[in-house]
Each structure stands twice: as C-alpha cells, then as structure tokens.
Simulated assay, not measured.
Amino acid sequence: MTTVNVNNTLHTFQNSLSAKQLLEHLNISPNGIALALNNNVLPKSKWEEPLENNANILIIKATQGG
C-alpha cells in the first residue's frame, strides 16, 4: 500500500504509482503544471518513476495574470 500527500490531502493506493499515474488518477492534465516532490521540483523526465510511500507532492498550476 502506498500513501501520498497531494496538496495537503492524503491519498492511499493499493500499489505504488508514478507521478504521471497519480495525475491520471486525479484527472489532472499534465499540461501547464509543475510538481514538487518533498519540496524539490520534480523534472518531467522523472514523472514516470515510482513514488515512495509517504511522498509529499505539491501540484502547482500555471495561471495567467498581469
């Protein structure tokens, strides 16, 4: 079992999953977002690597403004 904290909300999964799979599960488009894993920016090249149990993920969505 894997527990992941996403933007201060706990999610539990039967199996380990990658950041990419997490986004799919949460119905979040990977376009226009950045991910931080345990307070470090996670490059898109690493989004397919398995997340560790108790990982802390912050999803940051780009917004328009001026």
Score class of each variant (00 low, 15 high):
Leu37Val: 10
Ile59Asn: 00
Asn7Ile: 12
Leu58Thr: 14
Ala55Gln: 03
Leu35Thr: 06
Val6Lys: 03
Gln21Ile: 05
Asn39His: 11
Leu22Ile: 03
Ala34Gln: 11
His25Ala: 15
Asn8Trp: 12
Gln64Arg: 01
Phe13Tyr: 15
Thr3His: 03
Pro50Glu: 08
Ser29Tyr: 11
Lys20Thr: 15
Asn5Cys: 11
Val4Gln: 03
Gly32Leu: 02
Val6His: 05
Gly32Cys: 06
Val41Asn: 07
Lys20Gln: 15
Gly66Cys: 00
Glu52Tyr: 01
Leu37His: 11
Trp47Ser: 06
Asn54Leu: 09
Ile60His: 00
Leu26Trp: 07
Ala36Asp: 04
Leu35Pro: 07
Thr63Met: 14
Asn15His: 14
Ser45Glu: 13
Asn27His: 12
Phe13Gly: 04
Gln14Phe: 11
Leu58Met: 14
Asn5Trp: 03
Ile60Glu: 01
Asn5Gln: 14
Pro50Gly: 09
Thr3Ser: 10
Thr63Asp: 06
Ala34Ile: 08
Ala55Gly: 06
Asn8Leu: 13
Ala19Asn: 07
Leu26Ser: 10
Asn5Leu: 13
Gln21Val: 09
Lys46Gln: 15
His11Asp: 01
Thr12Asn: 10
Leu22Cys: 04
Val41Pro: 02
Asn53Arg: 08
Leu42Gln: 04
His11Gln: 02
Gln21Trp: 07
Ile59Gln: 00
Ile33Pro: 07
Leu35His: 05
Gly32Asp: 01
